[in-house]
Lab assay of single mutants.
Amino acid sequence: MATKAVCVLKGDGPVQGIINFEQKESNGPVKVWGSIKGLTEGLHGFHVHEFGDNTAGCTSAGPHFNPLSRKHGGPKDEERHVGDLGNVTADKDGVADVSIEDSVISLSGDHCIIGRTLVVHEKADDLGKGGNEESTKTGNAGSRLACGVIGIAQ
């Protein structure tokens, strides 16, 4: 089992970053940390998408990683996509320092995120509470600013 993974985020604009993942036990939580720069100040949706395909930019990554066919939600919700990591918060300089621990994603097994795409979005994720159909699919997080395929790390 891989215990570490990394993702280099890039987009068409100024947004870029490096996100690290570490899972010490196969059924334990995954620590997610790193930094994203070039964002507007505020909240930005942060999700693992189904495919590791960036051939047409971030759009070819498909929908959120959702092997259990659930509705979109927040990272602490029972009803959520596996890939729903909530929001990252950018400061006035456009930098989001990421520090998350998640017990639904994994670096092995059915919820493995390796080979899938991590995406940072234009807007805040409403965590499935926006009151419309799009909220239950995407959290109304808007366009995909930057993305990268999650790969095994040393």
Rank of each mutant, 00 (worst) to 15 (best):
A5K: 00
G109E: 08
V95K: 12
V6H: 08
K4V: 11
S26A: 10
G94W: 13
K123Q: 11
K10G: 15
S60D: 01
G109S: 07
I19Q: 03
S60Q: 04
F21M: 11
I113G: 05
T117W: 01
P75L: 08
Q23G: 12
A5Y: 12
V48D: 03
V48L: 09
F46N: 04
K123G: 10
N87T: 04
C58E: 00
G34Q: 00
V8E: 14
E22N: 12
D77Q: 11
G62S: 00
L145P: 10
D12E: 15
D97N: 15
F65A: 04
R80A: 06
A96M: 03
C112T: 11
K129A: 07
G17R: 01
G142W: 05
S103G: 07
D97H: 06
G13R: 07
W33P: 03
K71F: 10
L43G: 06
P67L: 04
P29L: 15
V32A: 09
K92T: 08
E133N: 12
A124S: 11
C7P: 01
G74C: 09
Q23R: 10
G83P: 03
G73F: 03
L85H: 02
G131T: 15
A124W: 08
E133W: 13
G115H: 01
V120T: 08
D97F: 11
E133F: 12
A2D: 04
V149W: 02
G45M: 00
T138F: 05
K10R: 12
L9S: 04
K137T: 12
V120R: 02
G130M: 05
G86N: 04
L39I: 06
G42P: 03
G86F: 00
G42F: 04
N20G: 09
G109M: 07
V15F: 11
A146Q: 03
N54L: 14
N140G: 12
C58L: 01
V6N: 06
V6L: 11
G73I: 01
W33T: 10
N132D: 15
S69M: 08
T136L: 12
I19W: 00
I19R: 02
G45T: 01
K4R: 12
V120A: 08
A90D: 04
N132H: 12
I114A: 07
T89N: 09
A90Y: 04
G73L: 00
L43I: 13
I100A: 11
E79P: 11
V95G: 12
G42R: 08
L145V: 12
S69H: 10
I19M: 15
F46V: 10
L118R: 01
A141T: 04
